[in-house]
Design a protein around this nucleic acid. Structure first.
Ligand SMILES: [Zn+2]
Ligand SMILES: [Zn+2]
Ligand SMILES: [Zn+2]
Ligand SMILES: [Zn+2]
Lengths: 161, 161
DNA sequence: TGATTGATGTTATGTTATTACGTCTCAGCC
DNA sequence: GGCTGAGACGTAATAACATAACATCAATCA
């Protein structure tokens, strides 16, 4: 299985890390946010891997790179990036992944392949959202939604046969 | 979708625990499953509380009742109940809650009030499911879905004013 | 200058979950 | 009866995930 899928397709990975970091940098400057070295490096790590990483995986990499070696170092950077939409947490995996569609405000849905561990981020249509409908009928006001599905990705389905 | 999710309304709780346990008992006998004392007691505990409980909360109660005191005791019972649809795990809370609509196969959606901690289980319409649509367009085969929303429940919205 | 804020680091601890292994029971079979 | 395999339950030990509390430093600003 491809160790490098975005969504479930192959792609040229060589430039997208730098581009995404650059975009985040610009976005932070505009918003008055500090994309500090640890934070930037954390984002790079997630982009390079292009898959969901646990906080301790990230921490190990940061530590190798000369940053602090204690859990709060990773958790704080991940919190910042998550809070500002550059990274998402996959609740089902207790893991983090770089946003595949940064910039726009969105409610992502994740498709998690239990065979190859790939994670794809799909966009949802807010107006037709299942949860929005439920919220409307029940009078519940949603602030954040978690949409995750486990299953088998197209690649793994194909190779099963 | 269920227009009347259990969770945000008061209701007479006195009989529903016994009824639900009875139903589970019957269902297990029919399916050739063993609803053993620990498993039954675990289900009772979750039904009595009628809210999401952590595995260690459940464990403490089981231990008080003379069952084992080590984590696997709770996790194994919860795994059994979850696997067979009597209990759901709320990923966002790392907690477990008794199913509000047992018996039918379903993909529940949870509404989690961050103000009062109430959790409501709403039914979803599989055919119109957001994730089902995504799966169709991407070729991903879903085996399990996690649908959870955090926000404010109708009761808390009302008392905010 | 002194106060405030926000970022980073550390130590220590808390919370959630699993692995590994021994025992018991019961059903199926000789 | 005695053997065997499967499944349930118990324990000890450990792994994996996450936060609290506190010290330091730099930038900002009255
Ligand atoms: Zn995203
Ligand atoms: Zn796959
Ligand atoms: Zn349910
Ligand atoms: Zn509430």
């Amino acid at each position: 299985m491809d160790p490098n899928p975005i969504g479930f397709q192959h792609h040229d990975h060589s430039h997208c890390v730098a581009d995404a970091v650059e975009a985040a940098d610009r976005s932070c400057r505009e918003a008055g946010l500090q994309l500090t070295p640890v934070r930037k490096r954390t984002l790079e790590i997630l982009l390079e891997e292009h898959r969901a990483l646990g906080a301790y995986d990230v921490l190990a990499r940061l530590s190798e790179d000369g940053f602090g070696s204690q859990p709060p170092v990773a958790y704080r950077a991940l919190d910042f990036l998550t809070k500002h939409g550059f990274v998402h947490k996959i609740e089902k995996l207790n893991a983090f992944i770089a946003c595949a569609h940064p910039g726009e405000l969105h409610t992502p849905a994740f498709l998690i392949c239990t065979s190859c561990q790939a994670v794809a981020e799909a966009e949802t249509d807010p107006s037709h959202s299942l949860l929005a409908n439920i919220a409307e009928t029940t009078g519940f006001r949603i602030s954040r939604a978690v949409l995750e599905a486990e299953g088998t990705c197209p690649n793994c389905l194909a190779s099963e046969k």
